[in-house]
Design a protein around this nucleic acid. Structure first.
Lengths: 189, 189
DNA sequence: ATCTTGATTAGCGGGACGGAATTCAAGATA
DNA sequence: TATCTTGAATTCCGTCCCGCTAATCAAGAT
């Protein structure tokens, strides 16, 4: 067998280059959580474009309801400890009932904020949007959920998923905000 | 000035030993998120006891990351379109009001399941725990959240993340389930 | 035309090292 | 004596280095 002459230096060969990485020291108890987070980050394989939230507004009405926190637990939760809680008053700002809606989210663009596909969010249209708020905006005629912020001094909609790119609004362009997200509701069963 | 002779070898000196750590490679785009998470993890030693639920750092269940709905999916959003929704009836099963509780989660151990520090979860004590449910269990006298399942024919608390080790309950050992988690509520503002 | 196999390139994890952080206690100071 | 300053000790954190592994390409063999 003569000395083989496979391969050879050529461009494009080798393991495909990915995103550069850094190494962070993580406490052992938090290692699984971080790995799970990174797994989830790698899961949605190149989800092409941020999908807008599906439009599903619904008004909120008030009824009675009782709920309690388990006994023997003082502290922060004392607010509701041994108290009956009405979820409507608990989740909706007083007086904002007519302007509060529920919207079901589709897409992964806000995974970094803990908002996942198929989650529901409570949106308050009466709140004045502030820097850092998660808002429902109208982009290209579609509802989209992003974090309101700035980029290079310009108003921008920042997704919480590096797979997606921020939307920057320059002078003259108008950012239409539909409402401010106040809570996220996820069904676990 | 003569050569100083401060200090000296003695036990107990030096930076206090903390939890051992591991190094994890993190994609550059996710470095800020992970660092923010670790900061938040180290933060709250302020208030000690007054937390309703203290979650064991070793218990995490993956739930939210498993829900992936492809694009499109009409009909889901049409469910409550233009309907008035009462949050109590929307979030609590009919007739289960007396046995439904709100528990505030402390700690960042549930980030893998999309449940973060200071989130609230709705727990239904009247639901019969089923295979695959996320349950609030009493482990070593503390409330813990995991997914209920079986391993080798034994009842077990199974994390969906392979990085976690399941807790298997053998004959004679009793698994005390406090309730079934039905919803997760996160305040975003 | 397809399979096998060597070569190539990059990610991943462990060892090691320097700087930073934090605590203790000796000396200096009032 | 009580308090402040400061050096020493000890550990953590980020980074460099390096070998192993994974993934891909293309030349030869079938």
């Amino acid at each position: 067998m003569p000395p083989s002459d496979h391969g050879g230096s050529r461009p494009g060969a080798g393991r495909p280059a990915g995103e550069p990485s850094q190494r962070i020291r993580v406490p052992e108890s938090q290692v699984p959580a971080v790995l799970a987070y990174l797994d989830a980050y790698r899961k949605p394989p190149a989800l092409e474009e941020p999908r807008p939230v599906s439009l599903d507004p619904s008004t909120v009405a008030l009824t009675a309801f009782t709920s309690r926190v388990p006994a023997g637990v003082p502290g922060v939760a004392d607010a509701h400890a041994d108290e009956a809680v009405d979820l409507n008053t608990h989740l909706v700002l007083p007086g904002h009932e007519p302007s509060t809606f529920i919207i079901r989210v589709s897409g992964w663009s806000m995974i970094g904020a803990g908002i996942f596909d198929n989650d529901e969010v409570i949106v308050d249209r009466a709140l004045k949007p502030r820097q850092g708020d998660i808002v429902v905006a109208i982009v290209n005629g579609e509802l989209s959920i992003k974090r309101l912020g700035t980029l290079d001094g310009q108003v921008a909609l920042l997704p919480e998923n590096a797979h997606f790119k921020p939307i920057v609004f320059r002078e003259g362009e108008t950012l239409e905000i539909w409402g401010v997200v106040t809570r996220c509701l996820r069904a676990l069963r």
